[in-house]
Nucleic acid binder design. Sequence first.
RNA 1: AGUUCCAUUGUGUAAAGGUAGCACAACUGAUUUUGGUUCAGUUAGUCUAGGUUCGAAUCCUGGUGGAACUACCA
Length: 555
Amino acid sequence: MSEEKSLNFLEEIIEQDLAEGKNGGRVHTRFPPEPNGYLHIGHATSICLNFGLARKYNGKCNLRFDDTNPITEETEYVESIMNDVKWLGFEWDELHFTSDYFGQLHDYAVALIKKGLAYVDDSSVEEIAATKGDIGVPGKETPYRNRSVEENLQLFEEMRQGKYPDGAKVLRAKIDMAHPNLLMRDPLLYRIKHAHHHRTGNTWCIYPMYDFAHGQSDSLEQITHSICTLEFIHHRPLYDWFIEKLEIFPSHQYEFARRNLSYTVMSKRKLLKLVTDKYVSGWDDPRMPTVSGIRRRGFTAESIRNFCDRIGVAKRDNVTDMSLMEFFVREDLNKKANRVMAVLDPVKLVITNYPEGNGEMLHCENNPEDPAAGFRELPFSRELWIERDDFMENPPKKYFRLAPGQMVRLKHGYIIKAEEVIKDTEGNVTEIHCTYIPESKSGNDTSGINVKGTIHWVSAPHAKTAEIRMYDRLFRVEDPSSEDGDFRDFINPDSLKVIPTAYIEPALAEAKAGDTFQFLRLGYFCVDTDTTADHLIFNRTVTLKDGWAKEQKKA
RNA sequence: AGUUCCAUUGUGUAAAGGUAGCACAACUGAUUUUGGUUCAGUUAGUCUAGGUUCGAAUCCUGGUGGAACUACCA
């Protein structure tokens, strides 16, 4: 049986083009971010799509910075974007900046003027908006629309030379002021901005608009399939118009629906607001849907690639549930992350019949899913920390863990039986006394006893401490992007919970930033970039599936 | 209102006129020294009304519902 994977609509288009011998059998895509912010998971789908298509069809994919607006763009963003693309596991075939084409784009503008297809307009922003018309209402032509080619050439040259202040004049295409598509009503091609550009400095004071730059840049790079999101679909007639009138390489634009994720926002404007208004610690806050944020949180590049492949690409509106992304993270980490033990909410456990002194070392498997991960030695002793909710004085029926008179296994260690509970004056449990069964040692258990529960622990005299940061969804509402206004109304106040001192097993003190572990029964945790030898910080990447929680919900 | 795009289980996607399938989620059960993992299984879907056809999720028409477009942003 050939495992025939179904094609998405873009792959179908490409295969048809290939079958027809279009573009000489070439496939060339590009990922074209504007360097005005950090990349987010939505960009990641676009990256996986563009680079993935190129990889699949033996083609090429460029990284192009669409830097036509000097006001918003910064070198810091350029660097973070290149870093994120590489981290996701992709290499660009060519690196370009739209600003490298400013000279060529200027020549294209001159060519359009010469053909009588572009003119200089002296109207103000307000006048242009007022004469644009409206949905269903045709616009009005400006009095400057019929200037001669010579005059337009001269004025455009004077614009370039810096003879006019910002906003005094613009270059517009001469198309149709009554066109039902607002974008075809004499769109702006160039505007005057006396501003410093992050790459071209002060060389230019006129800058091309997106529409006049994007398609031509695609064409200059011989891009065969220019893939963008659906909101650009109205731009396609313009895209094609420039290519036709300039008689340049016919790149084609294809649109797909933006990917949305439940409980998160993708708009760069809103992400920027989260950062500048300090709702989060920065672009790489582990709650942010940015590539740098989810990386810091411990999501792996492979799981993101798998996620993007799985959710696919289509043209209908969509909101993918977070649980799908979390599944791919768990799937990947389950194979890779070593199992270790940590106690987040400790209570003391004393094994009264275990000898006092230094205890013993236990031989522990690092990862049952990966035999190559090996073993480690783990100290065991008379006094341990265990998780507070692994003991219940009055347990419900299906509670498999510690309770008075009930037996449980200490992971990698012995079976114990709870004998006595010590409480403070307010009735809080401060210590649990129990006995152990010496013949039940993990690995050579001759006791013949079967217990239903296994709990994790850390030897009290050997334990190290660490700070644990637990993250939850940043937003309370499922689709925060549908809401406008103040974030405060729908930010989740419990999105960050800090545990200043948790107990961890001693070997973990050596862990380095970026290392990820499964804390047994608690979830996956990743060492934070701010961690130091004196102060270990773990971020919770994702929780484990919780069978006990389900059990309780039923009750 | 005009133009354009879209509509398949709770979610995301397949089925190019011929058995509505996959993954996640949910639910059963088995295995398990993690209430994890793994394995087996169950529930659940073509927006609507017509038309074309031997046969329609697919093609056509009308309706309904949703989205995008009215920046000297990209």
